[in-house]
Design a protein around this nucleic acid. Sequence first.
DNA 1: CAAAAACATTTTAGGCTTAAAATAATATCC
DNA 2: GGATATTATTTTAAGCCTAAAATGTTTTTG
Lengths: 178, 178
Amino acid sequence: METPSTSLILDRETKASERPGDHKDELRLWLRMLTCSTLIETEIRNRLREEFKTTLPRFDLMAQLDKSVVGMTVGEVSQRLMVSNGNVTAVVAGLVTDGLVDKRSAPQDRRVQILTLTAPGRKAFRAMAERHEDWIAELFAGLDQPAIAQLFRLLGETKTSLHRAIAERIGEAARGDA
Amino acid sequence: METPSTSLILDRETKASERPGDHKDELRLWLRMLTCSTLIETEIRNRLREEFKTTLPRFDLMAQLDKSVVGMTVGEVSQRLMVSNGNVTAVVAGLVTDGLVDKRSAPQDRRVQILTLTAPGRKAFRAMAERHEDWIAELFAGLDQPAIAQLFRLLGETKTSLHRAIAERIGEAARGDA
DNA sequence: CAAAAACATTTTAGGCTTAAAATAATATCC
DNA sequence: GGATATTATTTTAAGCCTAAAATGTTTTTG
């Protein structure tokens, strides 16, 4: 049985222990996390547009390429960014047009496209990345160092939980359960 | 001075105390939060499509209307969902076509459009909401109750920090600083 | 080795999303 | 009371995003 002291405050009339199939705490947690993510994303989008006349998808894509020395394939980028292949194709097209990204098919496997930052692309990204890091620090300025560390740890646990729940469901579908 | 024990593990060669203007911890925290949000969102999107042949924007919009007894204006919904007015207009159009939402201009102020769920809309939403709550609970199943409570609290602090940082910047812009 | 399967990417069709301009209605201010 | 400002919403133009089908390439298999 759950103790009231560890339960989130939900409703003055109702105790969590009285509602057996209730999962309102998880729902509230998710909504709060979504609010935080949306606030940060919107703010970063606005600043990227105002200061650099660019978009978050472009920035994110360039960030992936910046981390790689030898370049990345379309598939690798799409997996890292958790977006569809077709989306990467489209965003890359814009970046290639603007001379920020280079795209060439791999010599040993002509199915694969290797994406790399051009020299101007890398330079532009580094300038943006520096500002980006400052913006994020500003946004989290109200949290002290232990709070940041603890939040980071709890989100790590969350990530593990999510991966497991999602993997289980994929397993079910493959076996034809449910 | 920061103590190494409370610092996130970053890099074997470098201690946080040696890098003065560094904000890598905040950046890592943000990326981890974004990963969690994206994993949840994608999963919920997939399940809504598979089980109910609908989309997350539609579900979110109906969720707002379900909470209101008297209906909501386009502006209220757009503020709550943190999306543009034009976006609400577009999503509502689809829901009206499908008979799930009713839209009528307010009698005392004909600029305002009052949105309400229709009876079928409310019924359809309630069925989806029940499943949605279960899905979220499943996804967070790896966290025990104290972890959920603590994460909720820390995200509350985060929200406060974000609101303040964003408000400060809007203030600067209005005064012409920066 | 040729047919079939697997793979990487692109294309397509459609919905979401935004910022900015346009429209329409109400409120404010001489 | 009529010009002006404000407010609420819609429209527009452009980019993001996805799932599913199509294309072109490589690998596997009989």
